[in-house]
Simulated scan of single mutants.
Amino acid sequence: MIASRLKHHLEAQGLPFGTVRHPYTATASECAEAAHVPGDHLAKSVLIHMEEGPFLAVIPSNQKVDLHKLQSMIDRRLGLAPEIELDQVFDDCDPGAAPCVGAAYMVPTVIDDSLRGLDKVWFEAGDHKTLVEMKGSDFDTLMKDAKHGSFCTMH
């Protein structure tokens, strides 16, 4: 099932997308495996806490956010957002299944450069059983307002 705010935003953008159902998974790496998609093409979201409010960092599922790199890129003190903040921002999603499209939730977004220019990209739809699938060029268009940078490291 696609979260209602995400679905509305995707339809408003007029970009083609599909969905991929998969068995329930708790983590992004399990999700990539269950859905048979490459981990470096599965975009996962990490909510970052900042004094001015939260923002979304979007990285490949087989990577983790390097808070030092991100902090110097944003030039602010950062930390991972607590679970409660995540639930408040993504109130139409299952806990831990936040989509990477911050614009649908009025959350500023920064995306890692490694997710640009891919042939296909997948991301959480808002539950733990559905992925949104898009052509990479459409994903790049969808994320055009996000800041870009290089701020992740391998697990």
Rank of each mutant, 00 (worst) to 15 (best):
L80H: 03
L80A: 01
L80W: 06
A81E: 03
A81C: 02
A81D: 01
P82D: 08
P82V: 02
P82T: 00
P82S: 03
E83G: 01
E83Q: 10
E83K: 06
I84C: 02
I84N: 08
E85C: 02
E85D: 09
E85W: 07
L86D: 03
L86A: 07
L86Y: 04
D87G: 05
D87M: 06
D87P: 00
D87T: 01
Q88Y: 12
Q88I: 14
Q88V: 14
Q88M: 13
V89M: 01
V89F: 05
F90N: 11
D91S: 14
D91Q: 10
D91T: 10
D92K: 14
C93I: 15
C93A: 12
D94Q: 15
D94F: 11
D94A: 15
P95N: 00
P95E: 01
P95W: 00
G96I: 07
A97G: 13
A97K: 08
A98P: 10
A98G: 14
P99Y: 09
P99C: 07
C100E: 07
C100F: 09
C100P: 15
C100T: 15
C100I: 05
V101S: 09
V101Q: 12
V101K: 11
G102A: 03
G102F: 06
A103G: 12
A104G: 09
A104Y: 11
A104I: 10
Y105V: 07
M106I: 04
V107M: 02
V107H: 02
V107D: 01
V107A: 01
P108G: 00
V110K: 00
V110G: 00
I111D: 03
I111H: 01
I111S: 04
I111Q: 07
